[in-house]
Simulated assay, not measured.
Amino acid sequence: MIRISLFACLVLGSVAACGSLSKNRDLDGADLYLSNCAICHGLDARGGGGAGVAGLSKTPPDLTSLTARNGGEFPADDVLEALEGYATGGLRGRQMTPFDALQSDRRKRVRLASGRVRTARPVGDLLKYLEAIQTP
């Protein structure tokens, strides 16, 4: 019962926050995750969300095991590419809408295996958060 209530609060909070997210570009990665990703990937990022989300045809992946599924190294290049695609709606074959909250003119440098790159600050913040929540 508590789990349903928390999920309902999250959904309502996400809907209420959608309008303000595009105005507040200073959210950190955890807040961005809760406002944009948790509805499908779950509060714990283990893929447990998505109940009642229209058009969701399969269980979203566990975002805490990206490093484990990539041989022990966080796949920052791939995650950044996906996040930037979600920010602009440029990912083909994915059933996700663009996340306006990830768009920003403010830039942030992030470190990848291929070197340092500049990306939208919210994308960089979310990338850093996802790296921080990885489990062995």
Rank of each mutant, 00 (worst) to 15 (best):
L130T: 05
L56S: 10
Q134E: 09
G47L: 00
L130Q: 04
S104D: 12
L10K: 02
L66G: 00
V110I: 01
H41M: 06
A30L: 12
K58G: 10
D31G: 14
V11Y: 07
C9F: 10
S35C: 11
R118G: 08
G52W: 06
R94A: 15
R121A: 15
G55E: 10
E73W: 00
Y33G: 08
R3G: 08
D28S: 06
S35W: 05
L102E: 03
R106N: 12
C9E: 14
D44T: 13
Q134G: 02
R109V: 14
K108D: 04
G42Y: 02
T119A: 08
R121I: 02
A54G: 09
Q134I: 08
P98L: 03
P60L: 02
L80R: 11
A68P: 01
D78H: 10
P75H: 09
H41K: 08
F99T: 05
N70I: 04
V117I: 11
D26P: 00
C40V: 09
R118T: 12
L66M: 11
K58Q: 12
L130S: 04
G71I: 05
A17H: 07
I39W: 03
L27G: 09
K108V: 01
R92C: 06
E81N: 13
A30K: 15
S65M: 11
R116F: 07
V11H: 04
A8Q: 13
A51Q: 14
Q95I: 11
A132I: 00
E131I: 00
G50C: 07
G42M: 04
A113W: 03
A51S: 14
L130V: 01
K108P: 00
R121M: 07
I133L: 03
K58F: 10
S14L: 06
M96K: 07
R109G: 03
A45Q: 05
P61G: 04
S5Q: 14
R118H: 10
R46G: 14
P75C: 05
D62K: 05
L102Q: 01
H41Y: 08
V123N: 05
D44F: 00
C40Q: 09
Q134F: 06
D78R: 15
S20T: 10
D44W: 02
V110T: 03
L112N: 06
G93F: 05
A82L: 13
Y86V: 12
L91Q: 06
G93I: 08
G90T: 12
A113G: 10
F7I: 11
L6D: 15
N24T: 12
A113E: 14
A82R: 14
S35T: 08
K58M: 11
D44V: 08
D26E: 14
T64E: 06
G115P: 08
G50M: 05
A87F: 02
L66N: 01
Y33H: 07
A17M: 12
Y86C: 03
G115V: 05
A101N: 02
A132W: 00
E131V: 03
A38E: 02
P75I: 04
D44R: 11
S20N: 06
T67G: 10
R3V: 13
G55Y: 03
R109I: 09
L32Q: 04
Q95V: 14
M96T: 11
T67H: 03
G49H: 04
D105Y: 01
A16W: 09
R118Q: 15
E84Q: 14
P136T: 12
V11D: 00
L83Q: 05
G49P: 07
D26R: 11
R94Y: 12
L34E: 12
A30R: 15
F7P: 00
P136N: 15
F74G: 02
C9T: 10
T88L: 04
